[in-house]
């Protein structure tokens, strides 16, 4: 018997969370869960790995910090050193206090923008991208589990019904 794919709709986040835990326990594969707002604990229940986006952000910040130092060192010290108000610029480290604001700003600039770009690319978000939620009500007040039917379809269905699913739809792969 071939596996079917089910779209199961719920109307409450707590019921959804319990259902997801139950489904995971009975070893049925969940392809995706669509929710209108962040349901806390859902990622753990689905056994999703924690996101690494904040680690990348730290690296982006380091890049911004380095870029700012290299840029100001080249512009102010190497390319065209000046004596402004009796303060000659022949050494980056001695002139550093004046460069701190821009070192900070560029660190934040790189970290924030590259993080958001990473998020948009990883989650496939960009202008003219078609939305992929199978049911439009999942951005309003419904919660949808996109899952396999398991080996016994009717048993899975009755389990879902008992857990409080408001509709179960069989879809083609």
């Amino acid at each position: 018997m071939s596996l079917k794919r089910l779209h199961v709709l719920f109307d409450d986040d707590d019921i959804l969370l319990d259902a997801v835990k139950e489904i995971v326990k009975s070893k049925i594969y969940i392809h995706e869960v669509y929710t209108p707002f962040p349901v806390h604990g859902l990622d753990k229940a689905m056994k999703l790995k924690p996101t690494k986006i904040s680690i990348t952000t730290f690296i982006y910040g380091c890049i911004g910090f380095t870029v700012s130092i290299l840029m100001m060192n080249y512009i102010m010290i190497v390319d065209w050193p000046q004596d402004i108000g009796g303060k000659p610029s022949f050494s980056y480290i001695e002139n550093m206090p004046a460069f701190v604001p821009i070192m900070f700003e560029l660190t934040v600039f790189f970290a924030a923008h590259l993080m958001v770009i990473t998020f948009y690319l990883r989650s496939k978000l960009w202008p003219f991208k078609e939305a992929e939620n199978p049911d439009p009500s999942t951005t309003d007040d419904k919660f949808l589990i996109d899952m396999d039917s398991g080996s016994n379809l009717s048993k899975t269905k009755s389990m879902l019904k008992k857990m409080g699913a408001i509709s179960i739809k069989e879809v083609k792969e």
């Binding site: 869960v33 999703l48 904040s54 993080m115 960009w126």
Partner: peptide
């Protein structure tokens, strides 16, 4: 559709969304 960048509300999207909001 254009403004929402194709937001679908997957569990992984929300996980990243919350992390991005916090770090931002």
């Amino acid at each position: 559709s254009l403004l929402s960048f194709g937001w679908s509300g997957r569990a992984k999207d929300w996980q990243r969304f919350e992390e991005v909001s916090l770090v931002l």
